[in-house]
Design a protein around this nucleic acid. Structure first.
Length: 551
RNA sequence: UGGGUUAUUGUGUAAAGGUAGCACUACAGAUUUUGAUUCUGUCUGUCUAGGUUCGAAUCCUAGUAACCCAACCA
């Protein structure tokens, strides 16, 4: 045992509970409501819940919190399951709060029989009014003193569909003057004549979150029910219900949710971006959804590592996007296949190279020798990046400029002799000479150059569309800015290059491949790709100190 | 004017009365057939004011700030 990584507060709680014999093993759960897509914030919760169970030899249930039939749908259930699997986690059981509707109904009857719940006929306005405010106590409803028998009868009638939506609710009888607003006789059942994605039309009353979540935890014997900070006030009610129902004592613990720079995380805001067409959908590569990151080319490992690195605590946080990108590059640098792609082409002509000749050169596929090499054709005319030539070089420039020499990656050293301009004054072509004895791998020229640039042979080049994604927002914390968060959308978050020149090996790319386009960034194939048109997404740029040098 | 939660460097996160550490970012340098990677180095921090103590991020007292709570949402 050398140095041990210090534990986060949840691990401490678990270790304590295990060491003092409170539990023999732990059970956690990940409890999404199937009313939207999972985002990077959820992956923190997923990594926590599954990670804790993995670390301490317990198990984790996937439980859908589907108590509101109006907003929920199986479409979301499927996407949530796909995302969790993609992240690399397996749940022990797939459960639904709706599995427990019968049991929950029984629990409600128990409360009523113990005079701990009553049916209230008030309107929602009346209930809100009598509830008071955080600084003023509430007042009892006139229905609060109904007899147990009457409550029993009314509640059963509610279930039997005798009443319309909103006509009656079932409330826990606690304390209308409680300092915790949630303890002022919270509503635990409401009437909704709505079709449920799993139970169909069997029920017209549905339990509220507070009367479903803790009870479901208890039914599943969840030992550690982990949720985000905003549920802290619910814990008192969570505990009250478990105590009054005398059921398995699950415990709730809260951690601070993830916030990240240059994006928004609330479901409401994400929905707006989708519905108003600021992005192409939930899986748009600019979205912070798991499906968005996946499509953009992120790897599950990078997201898991990120969740590990950000830690778990109880204070509000705003994590630098650069940490996520660091984790991504760390993974991709080791695994991505290298390829040469010219995004903004300009022609380079090697004047002393034989017309019509093609040479087969070899280039390494990655940093690990086991990744091997691949053949690349070389010829007299090459596409190179427009930005790799400067007519008048700036300070510290070591790419092409009249008279300078650079190495063509995995090929020869060339010297810039001259260049052509078109009528508009734009550089059209660059003329170079090459040094035949500088061939990559057996260079006997003795020439050393500072710069190496990538290229694609003109007659062998294929084309592809490349989608260059950038951060969705211009500011670090759009949600905290004045006015509408959408005013801060980055207008350049997507720039499409319709015809980039790619090396021919890329035509065999699959959706699972990850590439580094040398000197340009990490890329992956997009699902919009067709047989006739390849489409690549930029996953993330390479770190670029040069752009900082030149400012 | 109530209740709850939280304050450690630019951003996160450790230190359970005993050297304020780690990571990211940023910056500088070395290596480099990717201005990448890798390596080395640098980087003004314990919310404030008192107190206890040989010694306080940690304990006590009083403040301050931020966030959450008044959905028949979760």
């Amino acid at each position: 045992m050398s140095e041990e990584k210090s534990l986060n507060f949840l691990e401490e709680i678990v270790e304590n509970d295990l060491n003092n014999g409170k539990y023999k093993s732990i059970i956690t759960r990940f409890p999404p409501e199937p009313n939207g897509y999972l985002h990077i914030g959820h992956s923190k919760s997923i990594c926590l819940n599954f990670g804790l169970a993995q670390k301490y030899g317990g198990s984790t249930n996937l439980r859908f919190d589907d108590t509101n039939p109006i907003t929920e749908d199986t479409e979301y259930v499927e996407s949530i399951k796909e995302d969790i699997k993609w992240l690399g986690f397996n749940w022990s059981n797939e459960f639904y709060a709706s599995d427990y509707f019968n049991q929950l109904f029984e629990f409600a009857l128990t409360l009523i029989k113990n005079d701990l719940a009553y049916v209230d006929d008030s309107t929602s306005e009346e209930i809100a009014h009598l509830k008071g405010t955080p600084t003023e106590p509430g007042k009892d409803s006139i229905y609060r003193s109904r007899s147990i028998d009457e409550n029993l009868q009314l509640f059963i009638e509610m279930k039997d569909g005798k009443y319309k939506d909103g006509e009656k609710v079932l409330r826990a009888k606690i304390d209308m003057t409680h300092t915790n607003m949630l303890m002022r006789d919270p509503i635990i059942y409401r009437i909704k004549h709505a079709h449920h994605h799993r139970t169909g039309d069997k029920w017209c009353i549905y339990p509220m979150y507070d009367f479903a979540h803790g009870q479901s935890d208890s039914i599943e014997k969840i030992t550690h029910s982990i949720c985000t900070l905003e549920f802290i006030p619910h814990r008192e009610l969570y505990d009250w219900l478990i105590e009054k129902l005398n059921i398995f004592p699950s415990h709730q613990y809260e951690f601070a949710r993830l916030n990240m720079t240059y994006t928004v995380m609330s479901k409401r805001k994400l929905l707006q971006l989708v519905e108003e067409g600021h992005v192409s959908g939930w899986d748009d590569p600019r979205m912070p959804t798991i499906s968005g990151f996946r499509r953009k080319g992120y790897t599950p490992l990078s997201i898991r590592n990120f969740c590990e690195k950000i830690g778990v605590a109880k204070r509000e946080n705003l994590i630098d996007l650069s940490l996520l990108e660091f984790c991504l590059r760390e993974d991709l640098n080791n695994t991505a296949k290298r390829a040469m792609v010219v995004l903004d082409p300009i022609k380079l002509i090697i004047t002393n190279y034989e017309d019509g000749k093609t040479e087969e050169l070899h280039s390494e596929n990655g940093p690990d020798e086991n990744m091997g090499t691949r053949a690349i054709p070389f010829s007299k005319e090459l596409w190179i990046e427009r930005e790799d030539f400067m007519e008048v070089p700036e300070k510290k420039w070591f790419r092409l400029t009249p008279g300078s020499m650079v190495r063509l990656k995995s090929a020869y050293i060339v010297k810039c002799e001259s260049f052509e301009k078109d009528n508009a004054g734009n550089v059209k072509a660059i003329h170079c000479t090459y040094f035949p004895d500088s061939k990559s791998g057996n260079d006997t020229s003795g020439i050393t150059v500072k710069g190496t640039i990538h290229w694609v042979s003109v007659p062998h080049a294929k084309t592809a569309e490349v989608r260059m994604y950038d951060r969705l927002f211009k500011v670090e914390n759009p949600a905290a800015e004045e006015g509408d968060f959408k005013d801060y959308i980055n207008p350049h978050s997507l720039e499409i290059i319709p015809n980039a020149y790619i090396e021919s090996s890329l035509t065999n790319a699959t959706l699972d491949d990850r590439f580094q386009f040398i000197r340009k960034g990490y890329f992956c194939l997009d699902k919009d790709t067709t047989k006739d048109k390849l489409i690549f997404n930029r996953t993330v740029t390479l770190k670029d100190t040069w752009s900082k040098v030149k400012g």
